[in-house]
Amino acid sequence: MSLIDLLLTPFGYEFMQRALAVAVVSGVVCGVLSCWLVLIGWSLMGDAVSHAVLPGVVIAYLIGTPFAVGALVFALLAVALIGGVRSTSRIKPDAAIGVVFTTLFALGLVLISVVPSQTDLGHILFGNLLGVSTPELAQIVVLGAITLAIVLLKRRDLVLYAFDPDHAGAIGLNPRRLGALLLVLLALTVVVALQAVGVVLVVALLIIPGATAYLLTDRFSTMLIISPAIAVVSAITGLYASYYLDTASGGMIVLAMGALFALAYLFSPSQGQLRRLLPRRTRSAPRVP
């Protein structure tokens, strides 16, 4: 078999074409948003929202509505509950996140145990990338386009919020509203990526691309290019590997991202661990473009 055959054969099937489209859309959206999550320190928030959507997905399957509807409702509910607990009690942010997402995740598990024959726990937890239908693909593309459009429209305000929320408030912006907007975008992004890698692995798409890009550049504008590129390359590589090795596609995509992070961690020109052999330089946060 020639190299061209190796490259083209997997995508001769319609289900692989749909899987590729979903993986690329999910990678781009998650890769862009992960830059803000990494800089602001919201990694745990991404994990929380991704787990909290489980009951919404189960309920959507049970009543016959698109999974994206149930997932989005519970993602927004989780964000609202976390914000409410944080602002109305002495509970610290990490504790509020832990309380809300574990409770909602447990609710999802209970719902699954009540009607196990009607819900495939494996598809919910680990994704069903190869089983994406055309209507589901359309939902993912629409949600992804909406999320990216909002990010592009509010990019400068969100960048300022990430680097200096006090200055953002001083020039007339509302930091609380910008934070709430980021949380809503996070909820939308979780729904987009859910079909690709499932509840358990979606946090990897939200964190690893941005963390890898953070090691490779000190400019935020460059980071916004590198991060989604890493996610897309990982998605394509993971799909090829899953096809030829007959393994889980979502897991292979995350493993590919993990491998790229490891390479950046070791060999990054400015931040790689191998630079310990050379004179150390002070690390700086990515600069605003």
Rank of each mutant, 00 (worst) to 15 (best):
S2P: 15
T9S: 13
F11V: 07
F11W: 07
M16Q: 07
R18V: 01
G27D: 04
G27T: 06
V32A: 14
L33M: 13
I40Q: 14
S43D: 09
M45K: 00
V49M: 09
S50K: 08
G56W: 05
V58H: 02
A60M: 12
V69Q: 01
G70W: 10
A71F: 07
L72P: 08
L77F: 15
I82Q: 11
G84M: 02
V85Y: 05
P93F: 02
P93E: 15
P93S: 14
A95N: 06
A95E: 04
F105L: 14
V115T: 14
P116T: 10
P116K: 09
T119H: 03
T119M: 01
T119C: 13
D120P: 03
I124H: 09
L125V: 05
L129N: 09
A138D: 09
V141K: 05
L143P: 01
A145H: 05
T147H: 06
L153N: 00
L153F: 14
R156P: 01
D164P: 05
D164W: 08
P165D: 07
A168V: 00
N174C: 02
L178R: 04
L181G: 10
L181E: 10
L182M: 15
L188C: 13
L194C: 00
Q195P: 00
A196R: 06
L201N: 06
V202I: 13
L206R: 08
I208W: 11
Y214P: 00
Y214M: 07
T217H: 12
R219T: 07
L224H: 04
L224T: 14
S227R: 11
P228E: 12
A229Q: 01
A231P: 06
A231W: 09
A235N: 03
A235V: 05
I236Q: 07
T237K: 00
L239Q: 04
S242Y: 03
S242K: 02
Y243D: 03
A248I: 00
M257T: 03
F267C: 12
F267I: 00
S268D: 09
S270H: 14
L274E: 05
R275M: 11
L277K: 14
R280S: 15
R287A: 15
V288D: 12
P289E: 13
P289D: 12
P289Y: 12
